[in-house]
Nucleic acid binder design. Structure first.
Lengths: 149, 149
DNA sequence: TATTGTTATACTCTATAACTATA
DNA sequence: TATAGTTATAGAGTATAACAATA
């Protein structure tokens, strides 16, 4: 259990970390902004899946996911295969062009981190990753929680 | 120094943490969204300052800051006092109404953290805060960095 | 001439709601 | 009737560029 003033500071830090996110976003090509890039990244990480599952992983509404997916489909970076078990949905998977695009993004991102985090140890980066994952996990899906108001 | 694959994972976690940011943003009243709320928070933390300094702290463009400030001024939460040393700029400071508004936001934020982070120790929260601050510091102001491309 | 702000414009991300097709 | 997905609409955040006033 932590003190309220700590929570205030944590909120400030989370807000301020937006500058890092924006810095990373500026690396992306105009035709693949951060929303679509996240789609590629998750499909690469978890393999083919339906839209609803992708929306869950992105933790955004399905309507948002649908638009990002349409964007990457239009550019040939993913394809929608029939879902054998359910005609309402399709299975999304990366194309070779999508893999190539993602490789480029990943490389640029890694370069940027390498430039800025050169004095972080492997263990320190790992710990930050772990804490961020835990934070996300602790919050769960905020959209489902009843407000006490 | 860390491995490239670690950087990819870190980028994913930073992107995914957006769901926490959005969860916090949903706590805010309609008349005070996250941009304006950050203005109040920083003025409370650092005391009165000029717009350019506020833009620096927010790490966003001055034009963006100007709009957020206009928003909170219109609602009487901050006031613009003449800057004795420079007629081009004014000193921004919280009003009592602004302090009251901020107190409400802070309370709701702390409640939400308390609900979700009940199994985090004080030291763990502190460490996350420290690592986020260090991350931000390591990146500096990304907008100023020359790209190697 | 350079700096401080402001405003207009445009783009991305997101959510809500209405709708279609299938389960 | 309920679920998967799409599309239209609207609101917030941000950056760029053009502009005004002052240093």
């Amino acid at each position: 259990m932590a003190a309220p003033s700590q929570y205030t500071e944590l909120a400030r830090q989370l807000s301020a970390i937006g500058s890092v996110r924006r810095g990373l976003a500026r690396l992306l090509p105009v035709e693949c902004p951060s929303g679509p890039a996240a789609v590629l990244s998750l499909l690469n990480r978890h393999g083919e899946m339906r839209l609803s599952r992708l929306a869950e992983l992105l933790a955004v509404d399905m309507s948002v996911t649908s638009r990002h997916v349409a964007h990457v489909v239009e550019r040939g970076w993913i394809e929608r295969a029939p879902d054998p078990g359910d005609k309402r949905s399709r299975l999304l998977r990366l194309t070779p062009a999508g893999v190539a695009m993602l490789d480029g993004l990943t490389g640029r991102t890694a370069d940027m981190f390498a430039r800025h985090l050169h004095d972080w140890s492997d263990a320190e980066v790992e710990e930050l990753i772990t804490m961020l994952a835990r934070l996300r996990d602790s919050f769960g899906d905020c959209r489902m929680l009843p407000d006490e108001a």
